[in-house]
């Protein structure tokens, strides 16, 4: 019997679905609340994993840095973690993720990187408005703002100078992808879930309230999407580019129909896509973990 551990810090529907599927597939499901885990340089796996040991861990922390450190800890104890640290680190930072897509030749929006406010202003002068600014670490569409003119740019630079966090000096500025709108003025993007490089399911995410962001966390609607060969090929290529595992690959359709991959998500949420998918997504994830544990 495979002992499958689910490491989490907020027990959401997704983690409960994974636990249920693990038990349905005959695994022993061990739940590890990362908030309560403690360890030291003398620790053994049994000091961290509930019940003493496990064959594989699905890392599901909603906090990126907590998940990253938990993965590092477990891998240092020779515990197999999905996704691996290198994958999580690459996906959790948009600049790292974009550079990997670029290196692998995966079509992605043109993106500028600047490491100071002055350099960001220089980028804007050279590339021209509009560009979309995105925090390099963060999710759910927070802080993603189209910069349409100097006033918006000045406001963002000032706000960042006040907060002055370590990532506030890193500027990720991306071309605006012009997309078709439906009758209600909504745009859409595409989320493909990949498991071990295989595209398992796709959905459209419709932007809410006429905004340009389609994140379900912001009220976007999941809509069933028939996966095309191009979507499948791009999703697999994006998965390979960051090191594989269980991922959510986000794409946009240019007005001419060509697809670009704008994001690869590490701790992918799947409650929304499960409502419109014909595949049992958590089952595919657990089966992948079980197979990985046997290798």
């Amino acid at each position: 019997m495979t002992r499958l551990c689910i490491a989490f810090d907020r027990l959401r529907a997704e983690e409960k679905m994974l636990k249920s599927e693990a038990e349905s597939l005959g695994c022993q499901a061990l739940m590890l609340d990362a908030k309560t885990a403690v360890s030291s340089t003398d620790s053994a796996p049994g000091d961290v994993i509930p019940g003493g040991r496990c064959d594989v861990v699905l890392e599901r922390c909603v906090s990126y840095f907590r998940g990253l450190h938990m993965t590092s800890l477990l891998e240092s104890l020779d515990v197999r973690v999905i996704n691996a640290y290198a994958v999580a680190a690459a996906c959790g930072n948009k600049m790292m993720m974009t550079l990997r897509l670029r290196r692998a030749g995966v079509p992605t929006p043109k993106t500028h990187f600047a490491l100071s406010a002055e350099a960001a202003e220089s980028v804007m002068k050279g590339a021209g408005y509009p560009l979309v600014i995105k925090p390099v670490v963060g999710s759910w569409g927070r802080g993603v703002v189209p910069i349409r003119g100097p006033d918006t740019l000045a406001a963002i630079l000032e706000a960042r100078s006040v907060t002055d966090g370590p990532f506030d000096r890193i500027f990720y500025l991306q071309e605006v992808i012009r997309r078709s709108e439906d009758a209600e003025g909504r745009t859409r993007d595409i989320r493909v879930i990949t498991v071990g490089g295989e595209p398992v399911s796709a959905m459209y995410r419709m932007s809410a309230g006429g905004g340009f962001r389609a994140n379900l966390a912001l009220g976007g609607d999941p809509v069933a999407c028939k996966m095309t060969p191009e979507m499948a090929e791009l999703a697999s290529a994006a998965s390979d580019a960051v090191g594989g595992g269980i991922l959510g690959v986000d794409m946009m359709e240019r007005e001419d129909g060509r697809l670009v991959v704008h994001e690869v998500n590490n701790t992918v949420e799947f409650k929304g896509i499960s409502k419109v998918s014909e595949r049992n997504i958590p089952e595919a994830m657990v089966q992948f973990a079980v197979d990985a544990a046997r290798k």
Partner: peptide, 11 residues
Amino acid sequence: QAETVGEDWGE
């Protein structure tokens, strides 16, 4: 009390 949403929360 549950943790408040952190800047690094998400997918």
